[in-house]
Design a protein around this nucleic acid. Structure first.
Lengths: 154, 154
DNA sequence: TTGGGTGCAAAGGCTTTGCATGTGA
DNA sequence: TCACATGCAAAGCCTTTGCACCCAA
């Protein structure tokens, strides 16, 4: 989806911001790894392969920018790092939010889509008067592979 | 629910840990405020009223302890602070987890119970083979009061 | 040309840790 | 008595910020 890059450039210019190689490079790192959840440090390491002189501060600043422009999504696993992935909205199936399955064994993160929350949100609006605008769902457990390995191990 | 304190003491002793005034005091602060989500600093301030000499480090260490003993629940709102509340399991309705409604206007946090995730978890187990053990749901939006105020304000 | 962007280093801010002292059991 | 707990201060660690230089537009 190279289209993403053009969209990004337009977004920057529209907001009176400049298109720089660093910004494009950081977006590319994330864009080339859909479904991967990278920390700032990891993004920094990847980008440095192409731009050895880039500073970590620029990565942080750009991540924040991308996040404000809704091009990337934030994921906090409470391990001391905030992780980022290319926004679901920019991927093929541009439905709304997705949720995360986090394996407590191997640490892998899986995504899944589900509309189950819509019913809930309507119910909450009716009963509590609370108007839901956004949501975040994290499910922790054991992934298929790890469950199978447990079985083998004995 | 003063029973909580006894349960705590037993838990400590069972694990070869000591029952100290500081630990009891910290548990009490949380226990007296069900549904409140306090930061370490806030807990520290409350406890200091009774134990002026307590150190912040002790609060952090005790919080971690309480968390490991599953007496308190963690809540991370990504605002730089980790918050804690007395565990839902220790309250009257000792069903499993509860979820959070976070108002983006006033910052208030509301809890609600729902079993809607059970269906989802079963479905995930069947389709993806992922075995869900725990979950975390945060819904962001506007609470009843803030919605009403918006209406009034014009 | 010129104001936003970048790199570097220092500062911030929450949380953890080291160590000597204190204290439940 | 004695191992665990506590207080204090220092250290850690991720992230943000200040500032001089750089470079898209």
């Amino acid at each position: 989806m190279p289209n993403n890059q053009e969209q990004f450039k337009v977004l920057l210019r529209t907001n009176g911001l400049k298109v720089t190689n660093q910004r494009i490079a950081i977006l590319e790192v994330l864009n080339n790894r859909p479904g991967k959840h990278l920390t700032a440090e990891e993004i920094y390491d990847y980008v440095r392969k192409e731009y050895p002189d880039i500073g970590l501060a620029t990565v942080y600043r750009t991540i924040q920018l991308l996040s404000e422009l809704n091009l990337i999504d934030k994921l906090n696993l409470d391990d001391g790092y905030v992780r980022y992935e290319i926004g679901a909205k920019n991927q093929e199936d541009s439905s709304h939010h997705h949720h995360h399955l986090i394996c407590l064994e191997c640490g892998n993160i899986y995504a899944f889509q589900d509309d189950l929350l819509e019913n809930l949100e309507n119910r909450i609006k009716e009963t509590l008067g609370f108007e839901v605008l956004d949501h975040e769902v994290k499910l922790y457990g054991h992934c298929k592979e790890c469950v199978n390995q447990e079985g083998e191990a004995i």
